[in-house]
C-alpha cells in the first residue's frame, strides 16, 4: 500500500481522530493548530486557528442530531480541542470558527465527547500547585445560552489522570493514571467505583471499542492491554519491546494496532528506534505484522470506523494515512481456516 503523507503540522502530532463516518480526519499538534483532512485523498479541508499553546487533544462529535433543535449549529459539526494554553475550545467544524472557550488553571491533556454529545470530559494537568483533574463540561447549555456553568470536577487519586474516556451510555468514566492504574469513576458524584493496577508505567492512550464494552490501553511499560469496561477485568495483554504511546482496535480483522518508540534521548546511541505500527492479533496475543514509515516515535494511531484504512501521527510531524491492500482483508489464520470453511 502507498501511504498518503500529510504535512500540515510543523511540530509533532499529539492526537488524530476520525469522525463518525470516517471521511474527515482531525489532527492536533504542538504547533498550536488543529487541522482537518479528507481521509480518502489527504486533502486539507481547513485549519482551526486560535490556540496559543501546543494542542494536546482533539475530539469530534460522534452522534447525530442529539442536541436540541433550538441550537442554531447543526449537530455532528462540532469539534473540541484542548491545549497547553490552559483552554479547551469548541469549534464549528465547517467554518473553523471558535464557538466557545473554557479556561482552566492548567493545560488540557485529553478531551472527549460523551456518547450523547451533550457533555464532554477534559483531563487537566497537575501543574503550578493545581491538582490534576477531570472536568465535566456541559456542551448543550453552552450552545443554548452561550454561557458556561461551573464545570463539575473530579480529582482522581492517588496519582493524576492522563487519559480518560466515557463508558457506554455515559454510565461511568474510565480513567488512566500516571502510575499505570486504571479506574472507573461515577461522573455525577465524583466517586471511585473500581480500580486496577495493570501497568507499571504511565498510561499513554486509552481507546474504546465501537460499542464501548471493552477498551485498549497502551503504556510506557512496553505493553498494551485489553480490558472489560464494566469490571476492568484484564482480557488480553500484548507485550512488545519498546515503549508504547498509542493503541487502537481495528474492525473487520481482529487486530490491535500499537505504536510508539524509544524517546529521542535513548535512541541516539542505537541504530533504530522501532518506529513501526505493529499489528497484534487481538485474541491470540501474537504479533502478525508491521508497517514502517515514521522517522520518530508514533504518538497517535486511529483506525477508520469502516476498518479499511488507518492513520498514524508521529513525533516527526507527519501523518501517514494507510489504505489497506486487498491482502489484508483476505488474511486468515491457518489455525482458523477450518472454521471459515
Amino acid at each position: 500500500m502507498r501511504p498518503i503523507l500529510l504535512q500540515g503540522h510543523t511540530r509533532s502530532l499529539t492526537q488524530i481522530k476520525y469522525n463518525r463516518e470516517g471521511d474527515l480526519l482531525f489532527s492536533s499538534a504542538k504547533d498550536h493548530v488543529v487541522n482537518v483532512w479528507f481521509s480518502h485523498n489527504g486533502e486539507r479541508l481547513g485549519t482551526y486557528n486560535g490556540h496559543i499553546g501546543a494542542v494536546w487533544t482533539v475530539d469530534n462529535i460522534t452522534f447525530f442530531n442529539s442536541l436540541s433543535p433550538s441550537t442554531c449549529i447543526a449537530a455532528s459539526k462540532l469539534l473540541l480541542s484542548g491545549s497547553a494554553d490552559n483552554t479547551a475550545k469548541l469549534w464549528d467544524v465547517r467554518t473553523g470558527k471558535c464557538l466557545h472557550t473554557w479556561e482552566f488553571h492548567t493545560a488540557v491533556k485529553r478531551i472527549a465527547f460523551s456518547e450523547d454529545d451533550t457533555m464532554a470530559l477534559a483531563v487537566t494537568e497537575q501543574q503550578m500547585g493545581y491538582q490534576g483533574a477531570v472536568a465535566i463540561l456541559k456542551i448543550d447549555s453552552v450552545l443554548e445560552t452561550g454561557e458556561q456553568d461551573e464545570p463539575f470536577v473530579i480529582n482522581p487519586e492517588p496519582t493524576k489522570a492522563v487519559v480518560a474516556a466515557w463508558g457506554y451510555l455515559n454510565k461511568y468514566l474510565i480513567i488512566g493514571h500516571k502510575d499505570g492504574m486504571i479506574s472507573q469513576y461515577d461522573w455525577k458524584t465524583g466517586q471511585k467505583l473500581n480500580s486496577k493496577h495493570p501497568h507499571s508505567d504511565v498510561i499513554t492512550d486509552l481507546q474504546m471499542s465501537p460499542d464501548r464494552t471493552y477498551f485498549v490501553t497502551s503504556s510506557k511499560d512496553k505493553s498494551a492491554q485489553l480490558f472489560e469496561s464494566n469490571t476492568l477485568n484484564p482480557l488480553k495483554k500484548y507485550v512488545t519491546d519498546c515503549p508504547l504511546i498509542s493503541a487502537s482496535i481495528t474492525p473487520i480483522q481482529d487486530f490491535i494496532i500499537v505504536g510508539g518508540g524509544q524517546d529521542a534521548m535513548q535512541v541516539a546511541g542505537t541504530s533504530r528506534g522501532k518506529f513501526e505500527c505493529r499489528f497484534w492479533h487481538k485474541i491470540l496475543e501474537e504479533e502478525v505484522g508491521r508497517v514502517k514509515g515514521h522517522f520518530g516515535p508514533i504518538n497517535t494511531i486511529a483506525v477508520h470506523p469502516d476498518g479499511k484504512s488507518f492513520s498514524s501521527g508521529g513525533e516527526d510531524g507527519y501523518i501517514r494515512v494507510h489504505h489497506f491492500d486487498e491482502d489484508y482483508f483476505k488474511f486468515t489464520y491457518p489455525e482458523f481456516q477450518h472454521i471459515g470453511a
Binding site: 500500500m1 486533502e43 505484522g289 508497517v291 514509515g293
Partner: peptide
C-alpha cells in the same frame, strides 16, 4: 499532501 513510498504489511 503527498504520496509516500510503498510500504508493506
Amino acid at each position: 499532501t503527498s504520496v509516500g513510498e510503498q510500504v508493506f504489511l
